[in-house]
């Protein structure tokens, strides 16, 4: 575990805490994409199947449980909480799951390091995570009135990905046999997805303006 990895995980954790606090404090999930949250739930479930088979560390197990629990909490609130569910932008959050899930599934069946159920699902989760933010970015562009917390949530998620790239560089330089090409390429794609958002986020912050994305 290096500093970049720890900071990356903490940023990821913080992003989820920001989202939980925002929804809980304002009793509103306006601007939050349920599709993205559900894609993350699929990502975590497929990737963390090894919770039952492969113990890595207490840290690893605790973080996995937190990511699963918090994501399912958000989904539960958005779907079933009697106050919060009313605030969900159902009509704007129209990105289709299958456009992301099917290509990622096909790709994971073709490009994987071992053709087993666990390994294919793990690889699928890596590919799906790279694009899971897209419904959220599309919703953000549509709602056009982004509250600070939603903007911060996405900024923190993007930062976590950037820190993971630094973690990989560090590991590549310090661990002799450390190589994971599929993860690296997906991770770089995932980070590129955020670049446009980062540009507008930083610009609005510098100019002290409310964040808005051009249509």
């Amino acid at each position: 575990m290096n500093l970049f990895r720890l900071l990356g995980d903490m940023t990821h954790l913080l992003s989820i805490i920001v989202l939980l606090l925002k929804i809980n404090a304002t009793r509103s999930c306006r601007g939050v994409s349920l599709k993205t949250q559900e894609l993350y739930a699929i990502v975590f479930v497929c990737r963390y199947l090894d919770l039952f088979t492969n113990f890595i560390s207490l840290y690893n197990t605790v973080m996995k449980v937190i990511f699963l629990g918090s994501t399912f909490t958000i989904i539960y609130w958005m779907r079933f909480h009697k106050v919060i569910r009313v605030t969900y932008d159902r009509d704007q959050d129209t990105f289709r799951y299958q456009f992301l899930i099917i290509p990622c599934l096909l790709l994971s069946l073709i490009l994987n390091s071992e053709f087993t159920v666990m390994e294919v699902l793990w690889t699928f989760s890596i590919y799906l995570e790279a694009v899971a933010i897209l419904p959220q970015l599309v919703l953000l562009q549509r709602t056009n009135n982004i509250d600070n917390l939603t903007g911060n949530y996405i900024f923190l998620l993007g930062s976590y990905r950037a820190l993971y790239i630094l973690n990989w560089i560090y590991r590549f330089l310090t661990e002799p046999n450390y190589r994971q090409y599929l993860v690296w390429i997906s991770g770089i794609v995932q980070t590129i997805v955020y670049i446009d958002f980062f540009y507008y986020y930083i610009r609005s912050w510098k100019n002290n303006e409310k964040l808005s994305l051009p249509a």
């Binding site: 990821h12 890595i56 793990w122 450390y178 190589r179």
Partner: peptide, 10 residues
């Protein structure tokens, strides 16, 4: 074995 190493990441 290479890929298994990577599984310590979240």
């Amino acid at each position: 074995a290479e890929e298994a190493e990577a599984k310590d990441e979240l």
